[in-house]
């Protein structure tokens, strides 16, 4: 049990650091997915330990949301790339004060 939680924490941390440090939007996106799946792993592990299906259902929900998010997010990234020839998140910084 502890192993699952440790693994989940490591995956989440990798994802979080990736989101904060990487500039490529695709990589940032992948890191976000990594964080989501780290959460899924923790949810499933806790569900297993508690002996009910609540965590697993929540994991399914996260997957559905993640799938929808991937569709929208990739579409946005594609559009940005088409107009700017760049997928760097730091370049898309016009929406500010």
């Amino acid at each position: 049990m502890t192993d699952y939680v440790v693994l989940s924490s490591i995956l989440f941390t990798i994802g979080a650091v990736g989101v904060l440090t990487r500039r490529n939007a695709i990589v940032v996106f992948m890191c976000v997915e990594l964080m989501l799946n780290a959460c899924n792993l923790a949810l499933v592990a806790f569900a297993n330990q508690n002996g009910n299906l609540d965590g697993q259902i929540a994991a399914f929900l996260v997957m559905v949301v993640a799938a929808a998010e991937v569709v929208v997010g990739l579409a946005i990234i594609m559009t940005i790339f088409r107009t700017r020839r760049s997928a760097s998140v730091d370049d898309a910084s016009l929406l500010k004060y």
Partner: peptide, 17 residues
């Protein structure tokens, strides 16, 4: 306060975290 809105996604992500 609007100076907080820098437009950099990664700084938003940091504040979220």
């Amino acid at each position: 306060l609007r100076r907080l809105q820098t437009g950099f996604v990664r700084s938003y992500a940091l504040s979220l975290l």
